[in-house]
Computed example of a mutant assay.
Amino acid sequence: MKLNYMQCWNGAMALLGTHKEAILAIAGVFLFLPTILFAQYVVPPVFNGDEDMSGIIAIYSAYFNENAFSILASNLVISFGGLAIYFSLAPSRSNTVAENLIAALKLFVFYLIANLLTALVTLPGFFLFIIPGLYLTSRLVLVPVVLADQGERNPVELLKRSWALTKGNGFSILLFILIIAVVGTITIGVLGAVVGVVAGLATGGTGWPFVENLIASLTGTAFQLILTAVIVSIYIELSGKKTDIVF
């Protein structure tokens, strides 16, 4: 089955509209909150602009050493929230928010292992001029929704099922997600720049760090929700899963 971009996009928007209460509740607690807390309380690495490669590595090493717990904790919480949203959008499930959170928690370890295996598979491809890595990533992009929809606990089987579902559509999925990613990144960047300029003019250059972090966290969370819904929509189309959602 060939991927239909318009149908996938319409399906993603329909999923977001139908499940908006559930995904907003989960996203607010597990995506937005840790993102803004991290932005507010963890100081990003500071560069002078004249560092060589060893200097850059040293700055990042110090940054990760000083903030290892915060980085790990925020990423785990965000990853768990993302998985719970996949459970909320999966076509075979119609549970409450609490039930989806419990189901995601039970399978979270398998999800982390599957992500680690995905990284191991795709990493060599990124060393080969990036494109092979992106292609491999697009072939394995359905791993979380396969986990949520089918409840498969075997990480290797999750990768195999995603690979089978995306057969013949690897580059189509890659192009589709790249378009969304580029548009989303530009939109977030422009909005952040506008907010920064307005804040700088209004405060004489001091800015409004909290407001800027708030906008960045909101737009980043919205982008993640859209991307998640798109991936679920791709899965629905390629797997032939029936859904009651009207596009």
Rank of each mutant, 00 (worst) to 15 (best):
P124D: 12
N75Q: 10
L159S: 07
T206Q: 12
V77P: 06
P124C: 08
C8Q: 09
I234Q: 05
F176K: 15
A193W: 02
G184F: 01
Y111F: 13
Y135H: 12
T18K: 04
V194R: 02
N4H: 14
I26C: 02
A90M: 07
W163M: 11
F69D: 14
C8Y: 00
F176D: 03
E66D: 15
L134P: 02
F210Q: 08
T219V: 04
G133F: 02
S233P: 03
W163F: 13
A90S: 10
L72P: 03
V46S: 10
G125D: 15
M13N: 11
G189A: 11
V97A: 10
V42Q: 01
P45F: 00
L31C: 10
F32Q: 05
T166M: 04
K167V: 06
T243D: 05
A73I: 14
Q7A: 01
L134A: 14
F38I: 03
I234V: 15
I78A: 13
M53H: 10
A98W: 14
V211T: 13
N213P: 04
V232G: 03
I71K: 04
S162G: 05
L24A: 08
A104N: 13
T206G: 04
H19G: 07
L134S: 05
F32T: 09
H19D: 11
A62T: 14
Y63K: 01
F129W: 08
I113W: 01
